[in-house]
């Protein structure tokens, strides 16, 4: 992996050059929160943001999309509009890159999803390092650092951004800027290491995930699930804002007066009463208790069994989005019986 550095005052110049590789999108402010959006001016970008309301997932798996149009007797035509659009996501945090890597395992592994894959190919990612706040626990989830899944990744080391080059495209971006980037020297390496220590110390949340699937297995009958079920509103906010929730629902939008139409998919959630409802009228998770429990089991246990790690990356979005304060870290701590949850 190539490691270079970019003087901070050259970032604007870099941003203007890099636009030849795609439309620039970055976090911008929206009423005190942040959202990834197409930039009209580079000065709108807020690279010091905490977290965006929706994760970058929305670019790869949009909330609602058309898959194909069909007409009886004629078959179907895939809907490919926009799939080849070249976009650069500038300023993606490590946990969110990690989450996209997790989505890769789901949509580009055993089951190949051409829509996701086309977007993944055409959307470049320039990551940026961040400082954890009181809701971040990505370090506990081993998602505070990524070694792949981005084209470039910037670390703030004071006067420079130290840049990891992740792909050939990232390398092209560097080359296109002429000599903006410089080689790193011994002082830069020290600055990076110091930054790494400072970041580690900045974490305020810590949760132990070792042997967690086993504890979940043993605590299937825990009374806590009943209590959480009584509190949960099934509002679905937690799944919508989660960078690794990938459930979707498939529907046909039928044209008026014919049997033709378009097949769409939209984000779904295991918290919805209809998520496990099947044709016979049977509902495998009819109670809210069963559904909220399932959310945690899928993230922290089921996904581990299938893919070797929890799908949660510790971004903290679901905790801040939940109207009834259902908090992942607290749930895990309670299952583990960590006594002083409040004093944490």
């Amino acid at each position: 992996m190539k490691i270079l550095k970019l003087p901070k005052e050259k970032l604007d110049l870099f941003a203007s050059v890099v636009q030849q590789f795609g439309e620039l999108h970055a976090p911008v402010e929206q009423d005190g929160r942040y959202v990834f959006k197409r930039l009209t001016r580079w000065s709108d970008a807020r690279l010091e943001y905490d977290r965006t309301i929706l994760p970058p997932k929305k670019y790869f798996l949009p909330p609602k999309e058309t898959l194909f149009r069909y007409r009886p007797g004629e078959g179907f035509v895939p809907h490919t509009d926009g799939l080849d659009q070249r976009i650069i996501l500038f300023g993606v945090h490590a946990c969110d890159v990690y989450a996209i890597n997790i989505l890769d395992r789901v949509f580009a592994g055993k089951y190949q999803d051409p829509y996701f894959q086309a977007r993944r190919k055409n959307i470049a990612i320039i990551g940026i390092d961040c400082t954890p706040d009181k809701q971040c626990f990505c370090r506990s989830m081993r998602a505070d650092f990524v070694d792949h899944g981005f084209d470039l990744f910037f670390y703030d080391t004071g006067n420079y951004y130290q840049a990891l080059v992740g792909t050939a495209l990232g390398d092209d971006m560097v080359l296109a800027t002429g000599n903006l980037f410089e080689p790193v020297d011994a002082a830069d390496i020290e600055a990076y290491k110091q930054r790494s220590i400072d970041k580690r110390r900045a974490f305020q949340l810590d949760v132990e995930i070792r042997d967690l699937p086993e504890i979940f297995e043993m605590e299937y009958q825990s009374e806590m699930w009943e209590e959480l079920g009584a509190r949960c509103l099934s509002c679905g906010s937690c799944s919508m804002v989660c960078p690794t929730c990938y459930c979707y629902d498939v529907n046909d939008d039928v044209e008026l007066g014919s049997r033709a139409g378009k097949r769409t998919r939209s984000w779904d959630s295991c918290l919805f009463a209809s998520h496990a409802l099947v044709g016979s009228g049977e509902n495998f998770r009819g109670t809210r208790e069963a559904r909220i429990k399932f959310r945690f089991y899928h993230k922290q246990r089921g996904f581990v069994a299938e893919y070797g790690r929890p799908s949660c990356v510790g971004c903290g979005r679901c905790t801040s989005a939940c109207p009834v304060h259902i908090d992942v870290v607290e749930v895990i701590d309670r299952l583990r019986r960590v006594q002083d949850v409040a004093s944490r």
Binding site: Q30, C235, G236, S269, F272, S274
Partner: peptide
């Protein structure tokens, strides 16, 4: 001859999909 699909989720779901700031939690 079909029954239209019933919506079985709350306004929050659509609200979050549109990436609104939440009036309740914020």
């Amino acid at each position: 001859g079909d029954v239209p699909l019933a919506v079985e989720y709350a306004v929050c779901t659509e609200c979050r999909m549109r990436e609104n700031n939440c009036l309740l939690t914020e």
